[in-house]
Structures are given as C-alpha cells and as structure tokens.
Design a protein around this nucleic acid. Structure first.
Lengths: 224, 224
DNA sequence: CAGGGTTATATCGTATACGATATAAAGACC
DNA sequence: GGTCTTTATATCGTATACGATATAACCCTG
C-alpha cells in the first residue's frame, strides 16, 4: 500500500522561516521574552502571516517559543531552572544514545561524523564562532546516527538547540574551545573504534563539563 | 515591558483539532501509514484547511505524523525499531524525572497525583479501556510534577503518547491491568513518601515491565 | 510496442480578506 | 474621585481564493 517513499526537495517557505527565526532566537537577535508579532515578522521576511505562524508553531514545539492564545507569540524566557533541566536531560540521553550510535554506525556514518568534527574545528580555528553552535550540535548528532535512531535523534537535537542559547548567553569561549576540541577528539576516537562504553562515558564527561561551566556562572554547586 | 502574564482560556480550533486527530491516531482510527489529506480532514471536521495544517504540524512535532513536502501528511508508521527507541528513552528519563518529582512535589501536586491514580483505576475497573491510555499517561506525568519540570514533562509526555500506540496495537490487557495497578500503588506510595530513590526504581521496574511485554510480542510476531 | 517527454489534474502551500478575542481607552455610576 | 461598565482598536485566528508542485495520464517518437 502506498507508503510514500521519500525525497522532500523543495524548501518550503515555512521551513526556511523556521530555520531563520530559530537562528535569530538562538543567537539572541530575538531576545528571551521578546514579542513576536506575526505581522511584523511577515513584513520583515516579506511573506504573509501563514508561513510565519507555521514556523512559530514549529519553534514552539521545539521549546524556543511560547504562545498565548489570542495574545501572540514570544521568545521563550531563559531560566536557570530550564538550564538544569536541559542538561539533566542531555546527561540522561546523550551518553546512551552515542554509545548505541557507536555500535550502529556504518562506514557512511563514520565518515559523516569525522566530517562534522572537521568542519566544527575548522570553524573554531578560523574564529567563526557564529557557526560553532550549530556545527557542534551537528557533530553530537552525527554520533547518535540519526538514520538508525530517528526518534532519539529528534529528541537530542531539540535539546542541543535549547542548550545553545544558554551557552551563548552565559559562557565565554575562554579556554572552552581547546578543551572541547580535546574532548571531541577523544570521544570521536572511541566512537570510531566502536567502543560503545568508552564513547558513552566520554560523552557524559563532555556534556558534564559544559554543564559545570554553566553551574559556575549560576553560582550553584553541582549535584547528582 | 509587557511580559504577558498567563491564562490561555479559549480553546482555539487548531488546538481542538490537534487533540481530536491525536486521539484518532493513537486509537488506531487513523491507521499507521494512512494518508491525511487536508481537504478531507477539513470537511470531516467542518473547518478550513488552515487549522488542519496547524494541527498536523503540531502532531508531526510530536512524532505521530510525517510530512512530505507537496505530497501531504500521513500517519507515522509503526516499527519495532521505534518501539525500542521509545522505551529506551522512557527508561532513561522517567525514573530520574519521577524521582526528582518526588522531591519537588508539594501538597497540591500530591493531591493531583493521587487523583490521577484514582481516576485511572476507576476507569479500569469500569472497563473503560478507551480512556485508560490517556489516564495512565496523566498519572505518569503527574509524578513528574510538570509545573516544576516543564521541559522534562513535555518530553516525557511526548514519549508517553508515542508509547500508547504500541501498547494498544500489540498488547492485550490480560493480566496487565491488575499488575499495573499493583505497580502503580507501590510507586505512588514511595513517591508520596518523598522517597526519591525508591520511586525512581519502581518507575523503572514499571516501565520495564511494559517494555518486556512488548518484547515478548515482537519475539513471537514477525514484524518489520 | 517501449521509452522519454509533455500536458493535465489533484493536492499542497501561501496570499489575501475577514471575523473574533483581548487589551486599552473612554465614559457612567456610585 | 474611584471602580465598574462600555466602547474602540490592534492583533490574532480562520475562511476563502489562488498559485505552485508533484504525480499521473497522454502523446509523440524511435
């Protein structure tokens, strides 16, 4: 029976808007709590309200936007509580997901992961910090092997996107870049070798390190 | 200035459609893989295509619907692989989330959890199996204390909804109802007592039990 | 008769238009 | 003078209308 095969292909306006608005929220161009009037965004992007609404609804599902019926959309506020949630969830999911990815990855996925790591580190070395967040997310996601853990990848990706805002807002790159690079390389090595347990553990340590940077900023102490 | 305070209140058409279509998908009225033509649904519910699209996009974000640009929506297919993912994710998240909920819950949340348990068991005793899935989800969710773990609750709720379809499709209630009741009561007791570790462990055991019922079915039935 | 290309059609995606809701402003009553 | 009611306005949410895309039917060519 007709299960539609696959190949999307057209880049609908809604989808493009979703990406562009998401980028602005993550980068802080649309600040936390800011109102997002449909007419204004529509004019800003030169489209009608319909695809704007669809994009905002998508972003709401991702947790970046909040909606109040008949009162409009606004950028979801940031809070220390949410940051804790994001990183607790990441710690609960990513190590397992990446460990499993290490087992599931074939040649293709291994090349993708290496490529993602390369792109990320090149961007960092050239000081293109704007792209760093997305590329970092892409690397982490590649380790999950989205093709073979579709749902898990969706959840992880969402958390990575949410985490970006906190990292950008609160953390300076100071020594983080070189440390991240070391952690990434160790993690990638274990992952490429198919050492699931080690990859999972290194993923946990890596996420935990960023979390602790954040905790330092918040002035809280780490906890179990 | 105006950070919008809070109280939604109107039940927009899109929101109602989201619930109704979700219910039909979860119940199997819209079968896995079935096409969801916008015009047909619009006529079926007596509305225009716009809220239909918005509902379907929301359900896509929840993982119940798939979209193929310019080719339409369809009910997301079920697969053994996805079932494994759902339950692995639940096992990774729910025990922690419920353990934490046991610490966070105040008087109000405790009453809510008890009420949710009561409603669920009453429905089961009266043989109202249709409602059981939702009520079971509501109970699990109450233990997470959504008010104080907003993001976590969103993720968990999504997984609970996804899990429902597999439970309905593959599992007969045979002895599961009474067993679930016992597990629920033990879990609730530990949770009410604020015993986070015990609540988490019982949550893990409880989810694992359902997972193993599913695994048994998959072991017997041949399925893609 | 087979295969590639072209046209036709159904459905999707977006623009425009309109009605509905909530907030803010103005007025009436105590 | 203050509070509640009433009215006005801006923005949201949905219906209608139209243009765009993909699939399928058709035709032409070899």
């Amino acid at each position: 029976m007709g299960t539609l095969a696959a190949k999307p292909l057209v880049r609908t306006v809604s989808a493009q808007l979703t990406e562009r608005v998401r980028a602005r929220i993550v980068s802080g161009a649309y600040a936390p709590g800011a109102a997002l009037p449909q007419d204004v965004l529509a004019a800003e992007f030169g489209v009608s309200k319909i695809p704007v609404r669809e994009a905002l609804l998508q972003l709401r599902a991702e947790g970046l936007v909040e909606i109040f019926a008949h009162r409009g959309f606004q950028v979801r506020a940031v809070s220390e509580a949410e940051a804790h949630e994001i990183f607790r969830l990441r710690l609960a999911l990513e190590p397992q997901a990446i460990a499993r990815g290490a087992q599931l990855a074939g040649q293709l996925e291994r090349h993708s992961a290496e490529a993602a790591a390369r792109e990320l580190h090149e961007a960092l070395e050239h000081g293109r910090l704007e792209e760093a967040g997305d590329l970092n997310g892409a690397f982490h996601l590649a380790l999950v092997v989205p093709a073979r853990q579709k749902l898990t990848a969706e959840v992880v990706q969402r958390l990575l996107t949410l985490a970006q805002r906190y990292v950008r807002l609160h953390l300076q790159p100071s020594g983080r870049i070189s440390r991240a690079r070391r952690e990434h390389e160790a993690l990638l090595a274990a992952w490429m070798a198919g050492d699931a347990a080690q990859a999972g553990e290194l993923a946990r340590v890596h996420v935990q390190a960023t979390y602790e940077d954040l905790l330092r900023v918040f002035g809280t102490d780490a906890e179990a």
